[in-house]
Design a protein around this nucleic acid. Structure first.
Lengths: 112, 112
DNA sequence: TCATGTACCTTGCATAACAAAGTAGCTTTT
DNA sequence: AAAAGCTACTTTGTTATGCAAGGTACATGA
């Protein structure tokens, strides 16, 4: 039990929402997505991201297409689908009420 | 992939913080704790709570004592320890920065 | 003594993030 | 044209957390 990985545990289930949100703004390829998450201090490694993208693709929340790069191997660009947008709305609602509920529980019981 | 269990995933790692916060206010026994979490719509079942309390106890973040009830079997009251309070402070800091980071990521990428 | 209610506890499962290792295309260096 | 290096995508095995389901134990009342 150490708090070094508290964030890692808190992340669960929230990453897919962040990724859908990122792709909701514009299409991106995995290394690009990792870079954007880092900008918000939400570190993600490849071994986390790739299976997650596959899950979202298999659930028809994302789609992808290949684009050749001028400086290396081709890139797999992901794009959010219409049902992905609907799903994202649900996740955002869940997230907001969850944060409210946790903060309510904390405020009830912290006041030291 | 359904959003019915989105909350279940988001909970991970946050429950121990909520439980420490509850016990930070006053000692309580498990059924009592479950009741309080329900009041904040953070549903928890016994199979989740008991192992979690044991983990926190084994990590010396909690301690307990028995009190006999007039209306049934004795109750196991849990109490937060000094190191539990320090740990709670760390978790609260992690939680707050995590929420900020997620919301930052969302705001960067939602604006539709 | 049997049913009911309260309280505590255990076992097995599903899942999500991660560490580590691997595959493959393209560029640069020798 | 090899070799080395970079970028990018992918897979495998481990760990942990919450949950469903079932079980144990004690007290009270019919």
């Amino acid at each position: 039990m150490n708090y070094d990985n508290a964030i890692a545990q808190m992340k669960k289930g929230v990453l897919e929402m962040c990724i859908l949100a990122i792709l909701n703004q514009k299409d991106a390829y995995p290394s690009d997505i990792i870079q954007r998450l880092k900008e918000s201090d939400l570190i993600v490694v490849e071994g986390t991201l790739y299976p997650l993208l596959s899950r979202l693709k298999n659930s028809s929340l994302l789609d992808y297409y290949w684009i050749e790069s001028q400086f290396g191997p081709p890139r797999k660009y992901y794009k959010i689908t219409e049902s992905g947008k609907l799903f994202l709305d649900q996740l955002l609602a869940s997230w907001n009420s969850f944060v409210l509920n946790v903060n309510q529980s904390l405020n009830h019981n912290i006041n030291s």
